[in-house]
Amino acid sequence: MKTFLSIICFLFFAHTLSAQDGWLYWKYKDYDGMAFTVPRWVVDAGSWFLDEKAERKLLRRVDKVRFMVFENDMNPVSDRDMKKFTRKAHRRELEDLVVVRDGKTQVRVMGKEKRGILRKVVVLVHSPEDFVFVSVKGRLRLNDINHIIEKYDKEDKGKKDKPMVPPVVKIPVSRV
């Protein structure tokens, strides 16, 4: 009986530990702003509407997306909670990838990667006025992400190379 209870306790605590990652979301999700979680089945369903195979493939590797935005001086997230989140995230093997601070605005990108697969990406944008939190959980391959980036990069380059006025168009000239 004791062993059974210990196992139950262990599983319970293990579960709460893994849920620690999203405490910031659960704490602030009901404040005035926008907060939603996209579960895996919605992501899967959404992938059917994409034309590109590479994009579909990438999206199907996403397990869960969490999104929380506060704008227009409505940021309720305190600096103390931000520091707490960063500290806890580091403990949970989420590493800082890029940190940029300009004035009072800080952008932090964190990620958990193992053997070329991104398990989790968290993007935090924090300023006294605004706050953005995006968390993507899944098994994203770095090469798949790069394919998408390359594709859009090529599309952008193609657009830039196109002349504003096609050379075939002749400007009508009326003779007097």
């Binding site: 590493e95 800082d96 990838l97 890029v98 940190v99 300009d102 990620g111 990667e113 770095l142």
Partner: peptide, 13 residues
């Protein structure tokens, strides 16, 4: 100041 930090992990990735 503007501060930028790119971690070793990012370069590895």
């Amino acid at each position: 100041f503007t501060m930028v930090y790119v971690s070793p992990k990012m370069f590895q990735m």
